Simulated scan of single mutants.
Amino acid sequence: MAINFKRTYKFAVKSALYITVFATGFVGILSHLIFQPNQEKLTLFLLIFAISLYIFSFLVIQYRVEFFIYRRVKKIYDDVSFLEASSFPKKHITTDMATLTREVKKFATDKKLEIETLKVREEYRREFLGNVSHELKTPLFTVQGYILTLLDGAMNDKTLRKKYLQRAEKGVERLTYIVNDLDMISKFEMGDLNLVMEEFNIVELVQNVFDLLEMEAEKKNIILSFDNKYSKSIMVLGDRGKIQQVVTNLIVNSIKYGKQDGYTEVGIEDLVNNKVIIRVKDNGEGIQKQHIPRLFERFFRVDKSGARAEGGSGLGLSIVKHIIEAHDEKIYVESQFGIGSEFSFTLEKIK
């Protein structure tokens, strides 16, 4: 990046003028006192002397100041790595210190912002690696423990062998689930998310998710239902598979954190500008206000111990957010601790 400073001669002009006035006056006084020359010849001499001295002083001062600033500023840039040496302008630069100060201040501000950004990213990277290792460690140790137990002799007991192999299988399933979610969210963040846009009935899609999760909800006697009877189809535009994953993740969360004998209710409402909003509401644990801004971060859990006991990768809501934003839509969350939560997102409606 080349630095274009405006060129100015103000400093050299003034400095040369001061030198010329002083030197000409000084020489004139000395000549008059010592030599007492002819007044006309003295005036002509002083005029020629002043012009010559002014031009010489101007050229020397301008060159020296430019050379001095160029060399010193270039060294500063090189030392602090503001610019690569190859990108520094190979020409005269300004003696206008206001311009120079403004440009250096701009570089300093940009670098400070860059450093702060890098610090945030580094902190995020450390937290992410810590979360990944923690999530993978639990199922890995579980699988390893059961396999070692079988190798130590439990394999000869048919009952224990079957039970431990089934538990090891669950650990492997959770590992696969976490790795698949990590792979998916990495593709999302790299922009490698190919949406297959199509028209589909959002009511039918939600009902399919209810059917898939019915047995899971029955374990806690949670009722899955619509808030109204939707007798007509509501056609929307989106990637059917991805939107089904969004609805599934939201309903799974409502079951996971729902109360025994509770409910999960889905509502679909018309909005302006050919939009619909899909609401997933429950009467579960609810979320404390300070945790809401971080809900969609990767691996963020409100209740870390309880959430891990329930299983899951900790990436569900982050995946939901990426899918909805890839559709250029919005996702919202409202929650009251101890009362329940409502997650909602918008989609384009087809008339």
Rank of each mutant, 00 (worst) to 15 (best):
N283D: 00
K259F: 12
Q288Y: 08
L295P: 05
N156E: 01
L295W: 00
Q290G: 03
D78S: 13
S15R: 03
L113F: 15
E310H: 02
L213S: 03
S57K: 04
N201K: 00
K106V: 15
K304N: 00
K158A: 08
V236Q: 02
V236P: 02
G306Q: 01
P139W: 15
F226M: 09
E189K: 14
N4C: 08
T346A: 06
V280W: 02
A16P: 07
R121D: 07
Y9P: 01
E189Y: 13
I178C: 04
I48D: 03
F200C: 12
T159Q: 08
R279I: 03
G238A: 13
T95G: 02
S52V: 13
I3P: 00
L237C: 02
K289G: 04
V236S: 03
G316P: 01
P89H: 05
G238P: 06
E325T: 04
G267R: 01
E66A: 07
E342L: 07
G314K: 02
V60L: 15
G130F: 06
E348W: 13
Q36V: 11
N253Q: 09
Q245T: 13
R294K: 12
V302L: 02
F337W: 08
S225P: 09
D79M: 07
E329Q: 06
Q290W: 07
Q39A: 14
Y263K: 01
R294C: 08
E285K: 06
I69C: 06
N221K: 14
N283A: 04
Q39M: 12
T159F: 06
L165N: 12
L59N: 14
I350K: 04
S254D: 10
I34Y: 13
M1R: 00
L212D: 05
L175V: 03
V266G: 10
P89S: 05
E269T: 14
M215D: 11
D78K: 13
V276N: 04
N194P: 00
V73W: 10
L59W: 11
R121P: 03
